[in-house]
């Protein structure tokens, strides 16, 4: 400022400003992450841009008409079949995240608070199922839930049912069960980490001030581990909306999800623009839900105080 006031040539000012800019923290930060940033740009942002571009085009058998159109979005949002699939996908993924978190929390709590010296052993044991391929794990649920499966044989052996139930496999419940199991470890870890960060003397302080175990859990441990619960829920919800393999293998007709429809558009149906529009719609809705979840929980936390 003083430089300008003294009427020095503007050139010197710009140079000084450019140097200041190059030395500023954000710029240096960007410089530092630029290789990874470019990598992410090429592998993540470009494909998404390609998909978004396609969603505004039209497919004519083998050629693509590049005139701008919203027709694909109209179909994606109004055709009952896609709307239903989208709803079902959301329903399945939200149910899965709810169940996963409900199942994962006690396990993470146990390891963190009562794992003693064997915490890492417990965590290690939890990851063991994930050494096998995801497909194998899905297939093993087929073995458990199938017509001649473990569960049916067991129930028949106990005399609870007379003939094998077909209600176990090839529906959305089978998808929910399989996904809940598949994502359990991914939910346990963030919850575990946030529980580890809860200072134990805070729980003692709550007890000292008169809280029994349940009250101190609800008033101290749970609110302080909320960030882990939120990330666990999102980590499970976001990818399960678009899951394709599980519904294909155990979902049957009733368990089909939006990703199966998207796959069909890019494959057999050969309508890339419609597939792209379905993808973008799903992506937007998931982002909105994730954003809303975070906002709601933040507000709730503030109100609970």
């Amino acid at each position: 400022m003083t430089v300008a006031a003294e009427g020095s040539p503007p050139l010197r000012m710009t140079r000084a400003r450019r140097n200041a800019l190059l030395q500023s923290e954000p710029v240096q930060g960007f410089a530092l992450i630029s290789p990874t940033f470019l990598y992410a740009l090429i592998l993540l942002v470009l494909p998404i841009l390609v998909v978004i571009a396609h969603s505004f085009w039209t497919q004519h058998y083998l050629t693509i008409d590049r005139t701008f159109t919203l027709e694909n979005y109209r179909i994606a949002l109004t055709e009952p079949i896609y709307r239903d699939l989208l709803w079902r996908s959301l329903y399945i993924s939200l149910t899965v995240s709810l169940f996963t978190v409900l199942l994962a929390y006690p396990i993470a709590y146990f390891i963190s608070f009562h794992g003693g010296r064997h915490k890492s052993l417990w965590l290690f044991l939890i990851t063991i199922p994930f050494w096998t391929s995801y497909l194998l794990r899905v297939m093993s649920w087929k073995v458990i839930l199938g017509y001649n499966g473990v569960l049916n044989s067991g129930l028949m052996g106990l005399g609870i049912i007379d003939e094998p139930s077909t209600a176990l496999l090839y529906n959305s419940s089978a998808v929910i069960i399989t996904l809940t199991h598949a994502w359990a470890a991914f939910a346990i870890l963030p919850i575990f980490v946030s529980l580890e960060k809860v200072d134990r003397t805070l729980v003692e302080a709550a007890t000292d001030l008169g809280d029994g175990p349940l009250r101190s859990f609800l008033r101290v441990t749970l609110p302080l581990s909320a960030p882990g619960v939120i990330s666990a829920a999102l980590i499970v919800m976001i990818p399960t909306v678009g899951d394709y393999v599980t519904p294909k293998l155990v979902g049957g007709k009733d368990g089909v999800m939006i990703a199966n429809a998207i796959q069909a558009q890019f494959g057999k149906a050969a309508n890339w623009p419609l597939g792209a529009a379905l993808s973008v719609t799903t992506m937007l809705i998931v982002s909105l839900i994730a954003g809303a979840t975070v906002l709601i929980i933040r507000t709730l936390q503030r109100m609970a105080r």
């Binding site: 200072d199 003397t201 805070l202 003692e204 302080a205 007890t207 000292d208 302080l224 936390q301 105080r305």
Partner: peptide
């Protein structure tokens, strides 16, 4: 501890951060 007529000031203070 929650039913004893004692209260404690912890070395780390243990102030609830939330």
């Amino acid at each position: 501890p929650n039913r004893r007529p004692t209260n404690m000031v912890f070395q780390s203070y243990a102030i609830f951060p939330h």
